[in-house]
Simulated assay, not measured.
Amino acid sequence: MLPPRRHSRRLRGMTLLELSVTLAIAALLCLLALPSFSDALGRWRADMLRMQLVSVFNSARSTAITRHAPVAVCPSDDGTRCGSDWSRGWLILLDPATGADLATPERVLQFRAGYDDHGLRATSSRARQRLRFQGDGRSSGSPLTVDICAGGRLHGQVVVNNVGRTRSTRVRVPIDCPR
């Protein structure tokens, strides 16, 4: 009887050249997709900021009604003073009737740090840097509009009217950011 035949199967893998070409093609595809991904990430952050601002404005209004006292909301990047860019963070604080410094530690009710993305910006009109709710929930002064921009393009707005109601809009076709 003859011994069984051994089948010599040669295991075949990828050569270094095949692997290099595959990785080069994958890297090229990633580079082509990166700008699109970056734009999508900017739009996502702009939408998240828009929804967060609606929530914080409603929360401040509710706090003013609950406490029967004026409550202010202002942009802040450090939690100690009011700033000008809502995307860097914000303060909710008890609003004094006088023109005293708003952001003293005993008046601050909440601080929320914002985004550290320099392509994202949210600004309100120069005439209205902060939002103030009276004890009955009404917003004093003129309506507040916050423009939310990502990559220099307007993506949405948050508007608080004099009654204190907040609404937000999302821009379907982004345009150049105002101001």
Rank of each mutant, 00 (worst) to 15 (best):
I92S: 03
P4Y: 09
H118F: 09
A46P: 04
I148C: 03
V158E: 00
N161P: 06
L144C: 05
P174C: 07
G89A: 07
D136M: 13
T63E: 12
R5H: 10
L109R: 13
V21N: 05
G83D: 02
L154G: 07
V73A: 00
D39Q: 14
T80V: 09
G79C: 05
A40F: 09
H68Y: 08
D176G: 13
S125M: 09
I148R: 00
N161W: 07
F37T: 15
T66P: 00
A150G: 12
V158F: 05
G13Q: 05
W90R: 05
R138M: 10
T98I: 04
G151C: 09
D95S: 13
R9G: 14
D117R: 13
G119I: 01
T169A: 10
V21P: 04
L144V: 15
R88S: 07
C149W: 03
V108M: 04
A26G: 12
E106S: 12
D47F: 04
R130D: 03
I92W: 02
S76W: 00
V56T: 12
V56F: 00
V54K: 00
G13S: 13
P96D: 04
L94A: 13
S55D: 09
H7D: 10
L29V: 10
R165T: 10
G79K: 03
V21Y: 05
A40W: 10
P3A: 12
A26W: 01
F37Y: 11
L102M: 08
T104Y: 02
G83Y: 00
G79A: 08
G152Q: 08
T80S: 09
G137H: 09
C74I: 08
R132E: 04
R61H: 00
G152E: 04
T63D: 06
L49V: 14
R6A: 11
H7W: 07
V173M: 10
G152A: 08
R88P: 01
Q157E: 12
A69F: 12
S8N: 14
L29P: 06
R45D: 02
P35Y: 02
P4W: 10
S8Y: 06
I175R: 15
R112T: 15
A97T: 11
L53M: 09
R6T: 11
Q129M: 11
H7M: 14
P105T: 11
P105D: 04
I25V: 15
G79Y: 00
L32D: 00
R107H: 07
F57D: 02
D47E: 14
G135Y: 10
S62I: 06
L41V: 11
L23K: 08
D39A: 13
R126C: 02
A113Y: 00
R138E: 08
D116E: 12
P3C: 03
C74K: 02
S87L: 07
C30G: 15
T166A: 10
V73I: 14
W44D: 09
L28E: 03
L29H: 06
Q157T: 15
G119L: 11
E106H: 11
V163W: 10
H7S: 13
V56R: 01
R130Q: 07
S55Q: 08
A122T: 12
N58Y: 00
C177S: 10
L131R: 04
G151Y: 04
